[in-house]
Computed example of a mutant assay.
Amino acid sequence: MSNNDKNELELRRLRAVDRAIADLRRGLSVIVTGEKEASIVLATEMAFDPELKTLAERSGAEPVLALTAHRANVLHIQPTGDDAIRLVIEEWMDAPLMRALADATHDLDQPFRGPFTRIKEGLPPTIPAAIKIAKLGRLLPSVVAASIELDQVEAISRKHDLSVVSLEDILAYEDSAALQLRAVASAKVPLQAAENTTFHAFRPKDGGIEHMAIVVGDPNRREPLLARLHSECFTGDLIGSLKCDCGEQLRGALKAISEEGGGVLLYLAQEGRGIGLINKLRAYNLQQQGFDTIDANERLGFDADERVFRPAAEMLKLLGFQKIRLMTNNPEKVEGLERHGIAITERVSHKFPSNTHNELYLATKKKRSGHYL
């Protein structure tokens, strides 16, 4: 296969995932295929009774509710050893209840739920893949799924105009999108902290999520440069939220890089440690109930940190930076970049005083995530 053919195949695979993400966010069903089986899935967050009825009719099977092991644990459902748990949808479980089961912010509204019947038999690989694609769409990590035979996929997808995406493509999506990043625009943008600054926008060739590189000055590509990976934070960066230290880290990093004489800040589209803005607000709601930042994410069904660092590594390579002095308190950023071919010659401490609103947040990052604070 030629390089052009390989590239076109990769783009088709990315587009298949992108279309499935868009359909799930619109409340539509999609088909996820595996090596030996397939599932029609619907994002639980977007599930209403008519859609559930349609799902059962199209598949000819009884749908199940799938949750992550984190979320199932919160609901006191016994583990199965798998990353996802399937529940039988009982007669008393309507769509509003299932949406509430997926959303931890409703736990105090409906504290007594169950008992639930979990399915213990072997978990079809398409189920955790379907949950993964819900995460990629910044939806709650839960789906309603119904099994179909592989030889039914083409007929069902054609008849009902359903997107089809493979398990393999879903699992490879984040790496594939990172490897397809390219610079699509750049412009000089003088900042308060650094006037000699150029913004470079990066986008995958399939038109997916965009990231930004902010290059200060004209750094020497032959020497390790001062760099910062910064995940976007609408509440902290733009509005000035006191619940985190993100805004201080952003502006402080730009100031430090300017004083150094040059460097780069990567502004990554990974809001809320990769769970998205709406889910971050849900996590904030849980923090108001007394849960720390890690418990809040896990109660919603997410991992403590859903970010990936390959996009940052690929952006640095495209800019010509292979060695950096990384401004971070997070050891996972160091490990993540080194795993993808970026040499970290020094970890530069980057911390700011706490306030009464974020002191628990910072203490949790230090105690439970191993941050150097």
Rank of each mutant, 00 (worst) to 15 (best):
I127E: 02
D18H: 10
Q289Y: 13
K351V: 02
L75K: 08
A95Q: 09
T328S: 10
D175I: 00
I278S: 14
A363D: 15
G301W: 06
E314K: 15
S241V: 03
H357Y: 15
L277R: 11
L150E: 04
V30G: 04
T33I: 10
I209C: 08
R222L: 15
S241Y: 04
R99G: 14
D109R: 08
K188S: 13
E260G: 00
L337Q: 00
D94L: 03
E168R: 07
L281S: 14
L316Y: 07
L97R: 09
L326S: 10
K205Q: 14
P63E: 07
D23A: 14
L286M: 14
N220I: 13
P115R: 08
R347M: 05
A130Y: 00
A84I: 07
T68L: 13
P204V: 12
L191R: 06
K323H: 15
L9R: 13
Q287C: 11
N3Y: 03
Q78N: 14
N7Y: 08
L265S: 00
G263V: 10
E338L: 01
N7G: 11
K367Y: 15
D5V: 12
K255Y: 02
H340D: 10
D109M: 09
K135L: 00
E35S: 13
E298A: 02
G262I: 01
I133Y: 00
S258V: 03
L281R: 13
R307Y: 05
L67Y: 12
F352K: 03
K53H: 02
N330D: 02
N7R: 14
E232S: 15
L319E: 14
A100W: 12
A104V: 12
M212K: 15
A69P: 07
